[in-house]
């Protein structure tokens, strides 16, 4: 579980990087420097030559590459969480994070193909910020403590220990203060 916590932090950190890269795209006015999507100037996105990443393409294509990496990490996070996390709401949150990254990718495509329509471009910020938020609370490293030593413990709705399996000695993750 500790490894999952650390991985969740990595995903959250990569999302911060992605948001920063998106900010660079906006502030350099490079949002439409790559006019096609999901390809890049006709190249398959991942085979676009590095030497052609010039001017605004550096920011826009770089943003797409970082977004792809974050998407990949989010897929792993969702699958991993679904596999090992006992709490249903945390598992659902991980799946919601994956849905958010997919939604944001689609909105990114729409915003390129329809020349930065304001509602879509502004709306894209929501999934990014919420995905960052989703990465942090369920997996706080400081929260990995034994359930027995946690004075504010909340009952797990699902898990081997609640089902009376005494062999389960996994450390418990302290749920954040929400949902109540």
């Amino acid at each position: 579980m500790k490894a999952l916590n650390r991985f969740a932090i990595l995903v959250a950190a990569s999302t911060v990087l992605l948001i920063a890269a998106g900010g660079m795209v906006t502030s350099t006015g490079s949002g439409l420097s790559v006019p096609d999507w999901p390809n890049t100037y006709g190249w398959f996105m991942f085979s676009f030559p590095l030497e052609k990443m010039v001017g605004g393409i550096f920011y826009e294509h770089g943003h797409r590459m970082i977004a792809s990496a974050v998407g990949f990490l989010t897929i792993i996070l969702a699958a991993w969480t679904w596999w090992v996390e006992p709490r249903r709401w945390v598992r659902r949150l991980a799946v919601a994070a994956l849905a958010a990254v997919i939604l944001q990718g689609l909105l990114g495509g729409i915003t390129v193909l329809f020349y930065l329509p304001a509602p879509i471009s502004i709306g894209r910020c929501g999934p990014g910020d919420s995905r960052f938020s989703a990465g942090i609370p369920p997996h706080p490293p400081a929260g990995v403590v034994s359930r027995d030593r946690n004075p504010f413990r909340a009952p797990d709705r699902r898990g081997a220990r609640d089902r009376g399996d005494s062999r389960d000695r996994r450390p418990r993750v302290v749920p954040p203060s929400w949902p109540p």
């Binding site: 350099t28 006015g29 490079s30 949002g31 439409l32 420097s33 010039v54 001017g55 605004g56 393409i57 826009e60």
Partner: peptide
């Protein structure tokens, strides 16, 4: 007028 721009080269 119709403006043209290159987003690669601002």
């Amino acid at each position: 007028m119709v403006p043209f721009k290159c987003d690669v080269h601002g």
